[in-house]
Nucleic acid binder design. Sequence first.
DNA 1: TCTGGGGTCCTAGGACCC
DNA 2: TCTGGGGTCCTAGGACCC
Length: 427
Amino acid sequence: MTKIFALVDVNNFYVSCERVFAPKMENVPMVVLSNNDGCAVARCAQVKALGVKMGTPWFQMQELAKKHGIAAYSSNYTLYGDMSSRVVEVLKKFTPSLEVYSIDESFLAIETVLQQYADPASLGHIMKQEVKDATGLPVCVGIGASKTLAKLANHLAKKHKIFAGVCDVDSMPKEDLYQWMTETAAGEVWGVGKQTAKKLKELHIHTVFDLLQSPPQTMRQQFGIVMERICYELRGVSCLQLEEVAPAKQQIVSSRSFGKPVTLMEELAESVATHAARGAEKLRAQKSVTGALTIFIQTNPFKPHEPQHHQSITIALADPSDNTLMLTRAALKGLKQIYQAGFKYKKAGVMFNLLADKPTVQQSLFDDMEVKGKSAGLMKAMDSINSRFGNAVIRSAASGTKQDWQMRSGNKSPNYTTRWDELPVAQ
DNA sequence: TCTGGGGTCCTAGGACCC
DNA sequence: TCTGGGGTCCTAGGACCC
């Protein structure tokens, strides 16, 4: 059966969540601010129209805020997480084949349920209405033969009123789709960021339609495997599967910027200990243990004239653990190694490396162990992890570069080997 | 001891996503 | 004065081993 993907995405998610509980804000221009009320992480439609970009520092938009009466809310991630789950519950009633892609987006495989509806767009409109009724949140729905096309459709649904929030590029006449693609910049495509868009422009690829017409194999040579996949996906060849079961995290990070610069070891220790504990909670929530953790502290990169100190250290644990006390102790031990008095620190955090079979040990600390040279240190770290997890696992699963894989598997790509064989020859 | 090529593994960092 | 937090994947190139 031909695959059909739907992407359901909440409009201005954080702002919409706040508005559900503050209806009087419905028509007031507003933003939601990051931690420490530092910068805008969500903007309503009106504020977007004023040209305020994602991540704009709040202090930089004071004048604009005064002029247009922009309200600012501090973020409440517990609320957003809860609202997110409610949306997913509503969508799961349509099909269990659902991938929660982010806090405000889900992909659904809808080909098996389509016969119950007049057409895909009708299904989209019903989803939209049911989410609105159950949660109060407005969503847009994009429908297409690949995830990338569903993303593109969702973009069109959001941007052009004519779609009324639901756009199905799969049922659309080809001339119409090509017209929309001609009117949409290549940089809007999922996976094409700023740098890539710039490079594309140099090759006179400006619009989505231009990109569609570029041969995938050629694009692979110029941009790599990610771009090749994008090109196929735009042509309706689905290369990205629905991931219904969220894979376990490969790393868990807890970090925060400080409201004010921090110079004292004790204050950093307090922060690092908190992050270790938070990370440990996340670990236990996904039933994982970590074999190594990285502690990092940073000065303010926005003040390049001030002395900068970005330092991190990775510690291999004697035993993989999810224990708060153990992890906190290790984190503080690491902090002591990298802390230097006299710097104004602006951020601190802890990262857990979860891949027992693919450890990332940059710099290891071993008591009573003289490590000569980087490589010797790494090998000792590897050996110490090997001895706990078993050699076979680590050695056989060691990561490979593209070149390694090409040699091992006969010039196939590492992550898409099975899929690759299924791809039809491009027209 | 010197020399070189091929294979392997890892790091660092870029780019992207929300 | 004030500038988010949490992720993934890919690649170039260095270090090392045989």
